[in-house]
Amino acid sequence: MYSKIFASAVVAATLTTAACAASPPARHWEIGPVIRGKNYSQGMPRNPEPAHNGWSFDFPAPDAAAGHVHYVTFRPGPIAGKSRIVVRYRVDAAPDTRFVPQETPDVPATVSVYFQRRGDNWNGQGSFQYYRWYAPSATVRRIAPGEQEVSIRFDDPNWTSVNGRKPASAPGAIDDALADIDRIGLVFGSSGRRGHGVFATAPARFTLLSFQIL
């Protein structure tokens, strides 16, 4: 079914092999989030599939009834001394394919980076509003066919907490989250609802080429 859409993917992957650093293997990544036993990425497998240089998954299609992908994350372990994240990925789809945020279908679908502190209860209240941090808006990418590279510094002042607060509003909170990091990865949604889920209107594939914490 995907032969025509993804015929060029093998060639592209071959050309970019030397430029792609090793990322955690697919089995270490989780498609979720899983909160109190419920996986919010409906219609998705628990893990992405191994790919030539990283991993891949197929977007649920052709509508929200088929499912939607929200978070794809892994546990990085301590990251002391690291200063930035560099992500490379590719989206393969027919040119007329639409990517749709399942909660806000009238705005563009996006992919961006986030990280999460250990022990988050997901309610975003009190101190927990500073447990999840979403990458600066300038690094958010609209989902569309093609290859992208995004570089984000951990000390960028425009990271956003789960309730839209910047690091300056709670001095030390983002540093505490980084020092006790649990998960890091990609979120799919919209610019206003980063990890609230995306589906495609036709067959489409997301391939992670590299996820580096440097």
Rank of each mutant, 00 (worst) to 15 (best):
S3M: 14
S3P: 15
S3Y: 14
F6S: 06
S8R: 10
A9M: 15
A12M: 10
A12R: 07
T14I: 13
T14D: 14
T14N: 12
A21P: 06
A22T: 15
S23T: 12
P24V: 08
A26E: 07
A26D: 08
W29G: 00
E30N: 09
I31S: 00
I31L: 06
V34P: 03
R36M: 13
G37V: 05
K38N: 11
Y40L: 05
Y40H: 06
S41A: 13
S41Y: 10
Q42K: 13
G43W: 01
G43T: 05
G54K: 09
G54Y: 10
G54W: 09
G54E: 07
S56M: 06
F59Q: 03
A61V: 10
A61P: 01
P62D: 11
A66I: 02
G67H: 09
H70Q: 13
H70W: 15
Y71N: 00
R75G: 02
R75T: 05
P76L: 06
P76Y: 10
P76G: 04
A80V: 04
A80L: 04
S83T: 15
I85Y: 01
V86A: 08
V87I: 15
V87S: 11
Y89M: 06
R90K: 15
A93N: 01
A94K: 10
A94L: 12
P95A: 15
T97M: 12
R98C: 08
F99K: 03
F99I: 09
V100Q: 02
P101N: 08
Q102E: 12
E103G: 06
T104V: 13
P105A: 04
V107D: 02
A109Y: 01
V111D: 02
Q116D: 02
R117C: 03
G119E: 10
W122C: 05
G124F: 12
G124C: 13
G126C: 07
G126W: 06
F128A: 09
Q129L: 14
Y131P: 00
R132V: 09
Y134A: 00
A135R: 04
P136F: 11
P136L: 10
S137G: 08
T139A: 14
R141G: 00
I143D: 00
A144G: 11
P145L: 09
E147H: 13
Q148G: 03
S151V: 15
R153T: 03
D155S: 11
N158S: 11
W159F: 05
V162N: 01
N163P: 00
G164Q: 07
P171W: 03
I174W: 06
I174S: 03
I174Y: 08
D175M: 14
A177V: 07
L178I: 07
A179K: 14
I181F: 08
R183K: 14
I184D: 01
G185C: 10
L186I: 06
V187W: 06
V187N: 03
R193V: 02
G195C: 07
G197W: 04
F199L: 13
P203E: 06
R205I: 04
R205Y: 04
T207G: 00
L214V: 15
